[in-house]
Each structure stands twice: as structure tokens, then as C-alpha cells.
């Protein structure tokens, strides 16, 4: 077996482990929410109260999650668990731009109420474009123009044309 097919096999196994973990989380959450649904007061007028539907749903999620866990455990070879963290780190390293995008977006969302939509989105667009683009003077100029249009321009459009006022912040 070649090295790349080996790697692919290991990646698949790591994917199965990640999935297994998500099934476990789902199982725990559904059991907890099932118990919470029990606390919803029943109706005096109907046999099935407001908690009945959630209980049916969460009981079924728990059941299917158990089946999924058993199925996943059957598929995963024992030695795969040891390689899980290395594979996770490799996977994350390869997708560093995704994390940069998500972090920038989170920062933008936090900044919007404080700085206002125009400034926060200008910084977000320009900053992210700088992170993603091929560094050339033309690209940087394009990035600046695009950032200005889709931050200050968009804010103006919504306020003046649609009467929708985006957060103003410090402006």
C-alpha cells in the first residue's frame, strides 16, 4: 500500500473517531434535554402536554445515537485512536485559512456593536482580503476599494434607500 493511500486510510479512521465523538455528545445532550422536557408542565386540557413532542424527539435521538455509536465502534480499528490527535493537528494545519476566516468573522461580529457596521466590516473585509490575496499593488488597491464599497457603501445603501439602519457604533 502506498503512503498516500495509507494517509487516506488514517484520515478516514480519524474522521470516524470524530464522528463517534459527535454521536456521544449528541447522546448526552439528548438525554439531558429529554430530562429537561420532563420538567415542562403537562396540560390540564390535553393528554399530551407541551413536553410530549420534545420527549419523543429526544428519545429517538438518543436511540439513533446509540445505534450510531455501536456502528462506529465496530468500524474503528483499535490502533486508530492513538493516531487521532496527530491526524487532527495535521488536518487543522492544512486548513489554517478556514480558521483565519472564522476568527476574523468572530472579531467582526464582536466589533460591530462597538465600532459600528461600517468600520468593523471595512476592517474585516480589508484584513481578510489581505490574508487571502496574492500580494500585488493592484490587488491591495482593489481590496481597499471593495472594502470601502461593501462597508461604507452598503451602510449608505441600506440607510438611504431601504431605511434599514445598521449599527452605527462610534460614528
Amino acid at each position: 500500500m502506498s503512503e498516500s493511500s495509507h494517509n487516506e486510510e488514517h484520515a478516514k479512521e480519524a474522521g470516524e473517531i470524530a464522528r463517534l465523538l459527535s454521536y456521544v455528545v449528541l447522546l448526552l445532550a439528548s438525554v439531558d434535554l429529554f430530562l429537561s422536557a420532563n420538567a415542562i408542565p403537562p396540560s390540564r386540557f390535553e393528554r399530551l402536554g407541551a413536553g410530549a413532542f420534545p420527549k419523543i424527539v429526544f428519545a429517538n435521538i438518543a436511540l439513533v445515537a446509540i445505534i450510531a455509536i455501536v456502528d462506529a465502534l465496530r468500524k474503528i480499528p483499535r490502533d486508530a485512536y492513538g493516531r487521532f490527535f496527530t491526524a487532527t493537528a495535521d488536518w487543522a494545519r492544512r486548513r489554517y485559512l478556514v480558521f483565519i476566516c472564522l476568527a476574523a468573522l468572530a472579531a467582526c461580529l464582536i466589533a460591530i456593536p462597538r465600532l459600528g457596521f461600517s468600520i468593523a466590516s471595512f476592517l474585516f473585509i480589508f484584513g481578510l482580503e489581505l490574508g487571502l490575496m496574492p500580494r500585488r499593488p493592484v490587488s491591495i488597491f482593489t481590496a481597499l476599494v471593495v472594502a470601502a464599497i461593501f462597508s461604507f457603501g452598503l451602510n449608505w445603501l441600506f440607510a438611504e434607500v431601504f431605511n434599514v439602519y445598521l449599527p452605527r457604533g462610534v460614528l
Partner: peptide, 29 residues
């Protein structure tokens, strides 16, 4: 590199403009 940040911002505007609520952005995120 142009389209990704721009569409993300358009999505932020769309999510906010629906109810004019900043908390909707948290739900969206």
C-alpha cells in the same frame, strides 16, 4: 479572496436587517 469576505459581510447584513437585532448575529454565528 474578494468574494469570500464580501459575501460574509452581505450575510451579516441580511441576518441583522431581518429583525434589526444584534443578538441575531450571535444566533447566525
Amino acid at each position: 479572496w474578494v468574494i469570500v469576505p464580501v459575501v460574509m459581510v452581505c450575510c451579516v447584513v441580511g441576518s441583522f436587517a431581518l429583525n434589526n437585532r444584534v443578538t441575531d448575529l450571535a444566533c447566525w454565528a
